[in-house]
């Protein structure tokens, strides 16, 4: 039940609710816990509530770090494969 997923906010509704799209599936969730949610934001959804907004810049940075560590690993693997 702890599995939470990133979802795109597609529209705001009254009473702190919002419409989200999960890979095309539309759901209504509460966004009352996250300040200033706007359509176009990605939020982490857990049991019908948004818990946090995903920061697109930090997401890019994580991917860059992953690519860097991966490139290092790939280089090591290639070096080990060489006779």
């Amino acid at each position: 039940m702890c599995l939470a997923i990133p979802a795109l906010v597609t529209g705001l509704l009254p009473d702190g609710m919002a419409r989200i799209s999960l890979d095309g599936v539309v759901k209504t969730i509460s966004v009352a816990l996250v300040e200033d949610v706007r359509p176009g934001d990605y939020v982490i959804v857990h049991v019908g509530h948004a818990l946090a907004r995903i920061d697109p810049d930090e997401a890019e940075r994580t991917l860059a770090l992953l690519a860097e560590a991966g490139a290092l690993g790939a280089a090591v693997a290639a070096a080990e494969a060489r006779p």
Binding site: L66, A67, A69, G70, A71, L72, G73, A74, V76, A77
Partner: peptide
């Protein structure tokens, strides 16, 4: 990328 990370961890 997972396999490359695996190699990085092993290294």
């Amino acid at each position: 990328l997972a396999r490359s990370l695996s190699a990085a961890i092993a290294a």
